[in-house]
C-alpha cells in the first residue's frame, strides 16, 4: 500500500493553485477517495495540489439570499454549521450521514462532488436543492447546474485544470420541509440508495417537490416524474406512495455484492416514500 512517487504542493493562494492545475497537477481536496486509490496504485498522479491548505476556499456564508459553501468545507464543517442547520437543514443532515467521523473530518464537499462517486450522499441532496456549482480554472469561471455537472459514474463536466470552487444552495422559506434518508452499505458507509426530499406546502396542498436519488445508478438524478405526481396533491399516504413508486422507473440500476439492481430499485421507492413523509412532517 505504497503510492508511487509524486510531487506535493500546498499553495497559499487560489491563483497559485489554479496555475499549477493548469500545468497538469491534480487537485487533492481531502483525499478520502484519491489517497486510497494512490496507495493501491490505481491512481498515480505525478503532482498533487492540496486545496485544503487554501483558507479562501473554506467558508460557509449567506449572500444575496443564497448560501455559498467553499469547496474545502469539510463534511464536519457542514454537519456542524449553525447557519446551514437553520437555513439548509437538508445539507447538514446529509453531511452527518457520510462515512464515519474520520471521513467527515477530512473529506470535503468539493472533493466529494468532483469525484462523483455514484453512491456518494451529497449529490442526492444537491439535486433536490437545485444547487449551482462554480467551476474555476486559471482562465475561466463558469456556473453549472447539478444536471449539467454530474455526467456519469466518476465523471463530471469538470475539465482538466478546472476545479469546483463553490457550491451554491438556495435558502428555503419556512413552508419547506426536507429529509435525507439512506441505507448505508455496512462496509463503506456509502449509500446503497439515498433519497433527498424537499417539499413545500401551501393552503393544504403540496406546491413544490424536489427529489434527489443517489446510489441507484451511475449518477445521482432528480426523480421528476415522482415530483410532478405529488405536486398539487394533499400529501396523503396514498399520494406519497404513488409518487414514490415512480422514482426508480426507467432507471438503469446497478448491481454489486451488496445489493442487486432490483433491491436497489425497491429501496429507492421505500426510501422516497419515507423521506417524503418525513419532509412533510418537518414543515413548520
Amino acid at each position: 500500500m505504497f503510492a508511487q512517487k509524486f510531487e506535493y504542493t500546498a499553495p497559499k493562494t487560489l491563483d497559485e493553485a489554479l496555475h499549477l492545475l493548469a500545468n497538469g497537477a491534480k487537485p487533492l481536496a481531502g483525499g478520502m477517495s484519491l489517497i486510497p486509490m494512490m496507495k493501491l496504485r490505481l491512481a498515480a498522479p505525478e503532482h498533487l495540489v492540496d486545496l485544503r491548505a487554501l483558507k479562501d476556499l473554506n467558508y460557509i456564508r449567506e449572500a444575496g439570499g443564497q448560501l455559498h459553501i467553499g469547496a474545502t468545507a469539510s463534511h464536519y464543517d457542514i454537519e456542524s454549521s449553525a447557519l446551514l442547520r437553520q437555513k439548509c437543514p437538508l445539507l447538514t443532515e446529509t453531511a452527518a450521514a457520510i462515512g464515519d467521523v474520520q471521513v467527515r473530518n477530512l473529506g470535503t464537499i468539493g472533493g466529494s462532488v468532483a469525484h462523483a462517486d455514484p453512491a456518494a450522499d451529497y449529490p442526492a441532496a444537491l439535486q433536490a436543492l437545485e444547487a449551482k456549482f462554480v467551476l474555476r480554472s486559471e482562465k475561466s469561471e463558469r456556473t453549472l447546474s447539478a444536471a449539467d455537472l454530474f455526467v456519469d459514474a466518476l465523471t463530471t463536466a469538470l475539465q482538466p485544470g478546472e476545479i469546483l470552487s463553490e457550491v451554491i444552495v438556495p435558502i428555503d422559506d419556512t413552508r419547506t420541509g426536507t429529509s435525507y434518508l439512506k441505507m448505508a452499505q455496512p462496509a463503506s458507509g456509502f449509500a446503497i440508495v439515498g433519497v433527498a426530499a424537499r417539499v413545500r406546502q401551501n393552503a393544504g396542498k403540496i406546491s413544490f417537490v424536489r427529489i434527489g436519488v443517489t446510489g441507484l445508478s451511475n449518477r445521482a438524478y432528480r426523480a421528476t416524474a415522482a415530483e410532478k405526481a405529488l405536486e398539487g396533491k394533499t400529501g396523503s399516504a396514498a399520494d406519497i406512495q404513488s409518487a414514490a413508486a415512480l422514482v426508480a422507473r426507467g432507471v438503469d440500476a446497478n448491481s454489486d455484492l451488496h445489493a442487486s439492481a432490483d433491491y436497489r430499485k425497491h429501496l429507492a421507492v421505500v426510501h422516497a416514500a419515507r423521506a417524503l413523509k418525513t419532509a412533510l412532517s418537518r414543515i413548520a
Binding site: A153, T155, Q185, N218, D252, N254, L257
Partner: peptide, 10 residues
C-alpha cells in the same frame, strides 16, 4: 466491486 457494474455500463 462496488463500481464494476456501473463503470462497465459506462
Amino acid at each position: 466491486q462496488r463500481l464494476i457494474d456501473g463503470t462497465s455500463k459506462m
